[in-house]
């Protein structure tokens, strides 16, 4: 593997973030903080504890996950979509680099941004609610693995999209609803039995549940199921990307 092209892509993507600091970092931090203020401090004080955890603290892992999923997808999809849109993708395709190097560059940069953002939001949450992290290593593992997996998904969306509208389609119409309905704001024990069963088909539930377990040691599904779901997601995304590069789908006519 040649590290120069990986570094070039990675640094160029991070440089884009620095140029758009307000949009990339400040905006998601502020919008997530608003959730903490409204659901944590204001409404949360009137909601009883869930599994012995105050409501404000309970929603922290779900909110971090909500931001992590949407930002990973947005960052990675825009990273590869913009060169396609501007035409500068010619340089990427004519360069002596492997597909793996391209993916590591783009997905690595997108995942880095998401993880940093996740940690900033975690630190911000500490200003609003008392925080404890029971399994910090597991927390970091979930954070990093989820960021990588959803950055891979974003990369796929960026290649698939042929317009800005499609770029927004998946984050807005798929990921956000799945995250809201995947237990970000509640435990699935609070749902009627039928809807508990339905929710088990929502893959995001497993990510939030595992992440919440790393904070408080409580979860809706087992840790093994959460890890298995992340790895399954990762495997599917890698297989799709491998197919895209093998066939040149939407990249090479």
């Amino acid at each position: 593997m040649n590290l120069y092209p990986v570094r070039a892509i990675y640094m160029a993507e991070l440089s884009r973030t620095r140029r758009t600091l307000l949009q990339s970092i400040v905006s998601p931090v502020i919008s997530t903080s608003l959730y903490f203020v409204v659901f944590g401090a204001a409404i949360g004080s009137r909601i009883s504890e869930i599994d012995g955890i105050s409501y404000g603290a309970f929603i922290v892992p779900g909110l971090i996950m909500l931001m992590l999923l949407t930002q990973s997808v947005s960052n990675a999809s825009f990273g590869i979509f913009f060169p396609k849109f501007s035409g500068s993708v010619y340089e990427l395709l004519s360069a002596p680099i492997s597909y793996l190097e391209i993916v590591i560059g783009y997905v690595g940069a997108a995942a880095t941004k998401s993880v940093v953002l996740g940690l900033i939001i975690l630190a911000t949450a500490g200003f609003f609610v008392p925080l404890e992290i029971a399994h910090p290593l597991w927390m970091m593992a979930f954070l990093v693995l989820t960021a990588i997996t959803f950055s891979l998904l974003g990369f796929i969306i960026g290649i698939w999209a042929d317009g800005f509208d499609k770029l927004q389609l998946v984050p807005l119409l798929v990921i956000t609803p799945l995250t809201f309905l995947g237990g970000s704001f509640y435990s699935i024990d609070m749902l009627p039995p039928f809807w508990q069963g339905v929710t088990l088909f929502n893959p995001v539930l497993y990510l939030i549940s595992g992440f919440r377990w790393s904070f408080y040691g409580v979860s809706d599904v087992s840790l093994a199921a959460s890890v298995a779901m992340i790895l399954l997601f990762l495997g599917v995304c890698l297989a799709l990307i491998s197919w895209i590069f093998r066939t040149g789908y939407r990249l090479k006519p």
Binding site: Y4, P5, A8, A12, S15, S86, S88, E91, A95
Partner: peptide, 22 residues
Amino acid sequence: TNEAFETVWNTVNFSRGLFGKP
């Protein structure tokens, strides 16, 4: 076709890196 908001220096250096050169 180019990255509109990048500087000349950065974009030319990016190309060199992309082609695997130090």
